[in-house]
C-alpha cells in the first residue's frame, strides 16, 4: 500500500507536476513509530519517513508525508509529546515529504508565543511557489517561508544543536540533511534510500556527482561505534533505520554504477546502448522490486544524463 501510493505520487510529479494525493486512498495506512536514539523517532506511513524530535521545548519534525496522513501522524506524535509543534524541516520539495506541511500546521494550532516555523533550502520554496502546468498551487500555510540560502543553518532546540546542511545538486537542487548533534542522528531525506536506487531528479537540479558528494558528506558526519556499526544512526528518506556501514554500501553502489556508465559514455555508447548493456544488473535484485519507482533504466538514464552535461 505504502509503495503503491508513493509510486503513484512520484509518477505524477514526474509526468506533469500534478499533485495527485487527493485521489489516493490513505485510509488503510498505519503509522509505525520506530525509536531511533535518545529523543528521536522515525515515523513510517506512506511517502517519505518522518523524523520527530521531542523534548521540553516541544516537537520538531523533518518531513510531513502526505496531507491526508496528517491526523494519523499527529495522533502518534501526541503519544510521544503533548508539546507544541515548533519546527518542520523539509529535506526537499517532493510531495511525499512536504505534502502534510499545511495540514500539520493547521492541526498544530496557532500560538504567537510558540510559532511554528517551516524550514527548507530556498530552492524548495522557489519550486513550491513556481506552480508547474497542471499543478494545484501549494498551500500557502505549508510553504517553508523560513527558508535558508546559506550552506548551513543552525538551531538549538530541546537541549541539542541541530545543524541543517544544504547538499547542492544531489537528489534535487534543494536537499537538506539534518544533523541532531546531541542525539547523534542524521535525517538524510531522499539522498539516501537503502531500499531502492536513488531518485536523481535531473529536472529539478539533481545529479549523480552531487549525490555522491552528499553521501560522502553524510559519511563524514557518521561515526560508528564498536565493530563499525551503531554510533550515529541515519534515518533515510525511505526504508529502515541505518548507520554508517549501510550508507557506505549505498555510496559504493552509486559510485560503481557511475564508474560503469562513465566508462560506457567514454566508449561512445548511446543512452539506449548503455541501458541495453544493463550496467546495474548485479544490483537490480537488491534495489528494484515490482513496485519500485526508480527502475534500473530510470537510474541509468539519470546517471547518463548527469555525466553527459
Amino acid at each position: 500500500m505504502t509503495r503503491t501510493i508513493l509510486y503513484a505520487s512520484l509518477l505524477a510529479i514526474c509526468a506533469a507536476g500534478a499533485n495527485s494525493q487527493q485521489q489516493q486512498n490513505f485510509d488503510s495506512v498505519q503509522i509505525h513509530v520506530e525509536p531511533v536514539q535518545h529523543n528521536i523517532y522515525m515515523l513510517v506511513g506512506a511517502g517519505g519517513n518522518t523524523t520527530v524530535q521531542v523534548g521540553s521545548e516541544g516537537v520538531l519534525m523533518v518531513d510531513t508525508q502526505f496531507a491526508p496522513l496528517a491526523p494519523k501522524l499527529m495522533a502518534e506524535i501526541r503519544k510521544l509529546s503533548p508539546g507544541p509543534i515548533r519546527y518542520i524541516i523539509n529535506t526537499h520539495m517532493h510531495p511525499d515529504h512536504v505534502g502534510g506541511n499545511a495540514a500539520i500546521a493547521k492541526l498544530a494550532g496557532s500560538d504567537p508565543a510558540l510559532p511554528l516555523k517551516i524550514i527548507a533550502n530556498e530552492n524548495v520554496l522557489n519550486r513550491l511557489t513556481a506552480t508547474e502546468r497542471g499543478q494545484a498551487p501549494f498551500p500557502e500555510a505549508g510553504l517553508p517561508i523560513d527558508e535558508y540560502g546559506t550552506p548551513t543553518k543552525n538551531l538549538h532546540f530541546n537541549g541539542e544543536a541541530i545543524i541543517i546542511y544544504h547538499e547542492p545538486n544531489a537528489h534535487t537542487d534543494g536537499d537538506s540533511v539534518v544533523l541532531f548533534r546531541g542525539s547523534d542522528v542524521i535525517s538524510a531525506g531522499d539522498i539516501f534510500t537503502p531500499d531502492g536506487y536513488p531518485f536523481i531528479d535531473i529536472e529539478r537540479g539533481g545529479s549523480v556527482q552531487g549525490e555522491i558528494l552528499a553521501l560522502n558528506h553524510i559519511l563524514q558526519m557518521t561515526v560508528p561505534a564498536k565493530t563499525q556499526e551503531g554510533g550515529t544512526y541515519v534515518i533515510p528518506g525511505h526504508g529502515r533505520i541505518c548507520d554508517d556501514a549501510d550508507v557506505v554500501e549505498f555510496r559504493d553502489m552509486v559510485v560503481i554504477i557511475r564508474d560503469r556508465v562513465r566508462d560506457m559514455i567514454q566508449k561512445g555508447m548511446t543512452l539506449d546502448q548503455v541501458k541495453a548493456a544493463r550496467p546495474t544488473r548485479d544490483y537490480d535484485t537488491e534495489y528494484v522490486t515490482s513496485n519500485s519507482f526508480v527502475t534500473a533504466d530510470r537510474f541509468v538514464e539519470a546517471v547518463y544524463k548527469s555525466l553527459s552535461k
Partner: peptide, 9 residues
C-alpha cells in the same frame, strides 16, 4: 525487531 529497526553484522 520490526522491519524498520537497524540491522547489524
Amino acid at each position: 525487531p520490526s522491519e524498520y529497526a537497524p540491522h547489524t553484522l
